[in-house]
Simulated scan of single mutants.
Amino acid sequence: MMQLNQFADTQALNAVFANRLTDILQQAIQERGAAYLVVSGGKTPQALFTALSQTQLAWDKVTVLLADDRWLDDSQPDSNERLVKATLLQHNASAARFISLYANTSTAFDGAPQVLERVKNLPTFDAVILGMGEDGHTASLFPCSEQIKQGLAADAPAVLAVAPTTAPYQRISLSAARLLNSRQLFLHLVGANKLAVLDKAMAGDDVYAMPIRAFLQHPVATVTVMYTAN
């Protein structure tokens, strides 16, 4: 199920989104003593991360991890981990605990078991922020990859290695089942082209052609779409 929220511009979206995430994390800390936030990389969330990093919150009780990453160490410009450390894990949020999806192995397939050990026993996430590509991929669940059926399977492991054929680098990704195990699911979209992709995703039902459908059309989970054209 999908709930679409449209905003006039990115500044308005980020202000509301940062406040909402802060409330979710604060409630988690009050009720369970800890909060778990999953974020996505790329250009879209950078301003949101900067705003969120300055919010008043017991960040030392928050655990942050990525929905996916390229198989690169955090010295590389294309590393999502590098981006998160430079934008979100700053200011007040520098006190948060971060779980890396990278291991020092030559391939993501070799490193996936190490990453799985870090992630497999985590509790239900409090909030997951997804992105979406032009091809309908989310996290690193690419329709072009041989691993897509595994990544969308109900019994998938929490973490899997992915080798997309239409994007650079091997990837490490949380599975759809692990991402869906969250109290709140968000899809963060900026740009008129993304609304067109969203409309296409809602118009069909083949999850392997557009993996974002596994979330948007899930029979139980609700995905809150935070969207602006500007």
Results as ranks from 00 to 15, higher is better:
Q150R: 06
L116R: 08
K43A: 10
D73N: 13
P45A: 07
A67E: 06
N19S: 14
A51K: 00
S79I: 01
A214M: 08
L88D: 14
A67R: 00
P123D: 06
V197S: 09
A18V: 11
N181H: 10
H137A: 05
A192N: 09
A95T: 01
K194S: 04
L180Y: 02
G191A: 02
D74K: 06
D205C: 05
A127C: 07
P113G: 02
N181Q: 12
R178I: 04
T138M: 10
K120M: 13
Q184T: 09
V190M: 03
F7Q: 11
V119R: 05
S94F: 03
P164M: 09
A229G: 10
Q30C: 03
Q56T: 13
T224C: 02
V223H: 06
A177Q: 11
N104I: 00
V84M: 12
V115D: 10
T55Y: 00
L66Q: 13
V207G: 00
A161Q: 04
D135M: 01
N230R: 10
T138R: 10
V197A: 09
Q170G: 05
L189Y: 03
P77M: 11
Q26D: 15
T165A: 12
N193W: 00
T165R: 08
H137Y: 13
Y227W: 15
Q11R: 13
A108K: 02
N5F: 06
L198H: 11
V220P: 00
L180Q: 14
T55G: 00
K200C: 02
S145E: 11
V16Y: 07
E31R: 14
A96M: 08
Q150D: 09
G136E: 13
F98A: 03
I29C: 05
E81I: 01
F125M: 15
S100L: 06
G191S: 03
A58T: 08
I172Q: 06
A214V: 02
S175H: 09
G41Y: 03
D126G: 01
I29S: 04
Q170I: 05
V223C: 08
V220M: 06
D135T: 05
T87C: 14
K85L: 12
